[in-house]
Design a protein around this nucleic acid. Sequence first.
DNA 1: ATCCAGGTTCGGG
DNA 2: CCCGAACATGGA
Length: 308
Amino acid sequence: MVNSPLKQVSTPSYGSELLISVPEEFTFAHCQKFLNRNKHECLHQVDSQRWIKLLKLDQQLILVTVSMTQGSLRVQTHDNILSESQKRQLKAYITEVFDLKTDLSQFYRAVKNEEIMAHLTQRYYGLRLIGIPDLFEALCWCVIGQQINLNFAYQLKKQLVYNKGERLQFKGVDYYTFPEVEVIAEMSTEEFAAWKFSNAKAQYIIGIAQAMLQGQISKEMLLGSSKEDAVKGLTALKGVGPWSAHYVMMKCCRENSAYPIDDVGLQNAVKIHSAMTRKPTKTELLQLSKRWNPWQAYATFYLWHSLI
DNA sequence: ATCCAGGTTCGGG
DNA sequence: CCCGAACATGGA
């Protein structure tokens, strides 16, 4: 049989499989659409049926494929038989990325009287807030994305991941993990400059890595604090302002009332859906968000999704 | 050419 | 406390 390099193998010859049941309000295709929003994304791959990602579970690199089957998420490994511990971690990871524990019907009910969300929640019924479970990755992604267009941001991330992440080759395709804190903490700003990072971004990312390494901040800490204290802890990091703090709360800590109000994408989306001739002011965005309470993060995510 | 991109920090009034 | 400038680069 001819083995074309473009052809994907449909079933693993030697691997583990687990099925994760999904809530009623879950539409894999909408999530796929978001995951596939930029062609420069380097931390996973998406095809029409599957999401493919390299994970590190118990210090082992494991390539994982996620697809939808008979009302469940099917999670497969390609050439690893998972330990029970790895299976647990994998299930927890997938559950977190796709936010399977949130009852979306409550979000839908809460916003049904606000025009924009009434529209978007019908249009994207079952879309889940796709998360970034790793705090370091979430923070770096914030810093990278600040003040530049998303396309360029993805290219900067690619430099970081290709040069400092871990790689696994499978059937001729390279897959990567996000770099470890320890690796980035030892870098110099000069290395970043060669990748077209600004000096400020480089310093922020190195500083964040060092702060995490020293235990100044951790995901456990954030999850154990009030929302207010968590934002305070995050903004204490150089390079992390209000927007980034709320972005991290939203994508990493699963705080559904987080609200990155300074976000230009949010502003543009509201402008479009309100048929405004100018961007909404911060005051207007705050007023609007009261009608989404306590689901500001989900509303923001649906608005972002409408810009894809 | 000029302005805007998933903002934030820093220095000056 | 508030405001402008600087930041690196690319696309419109």
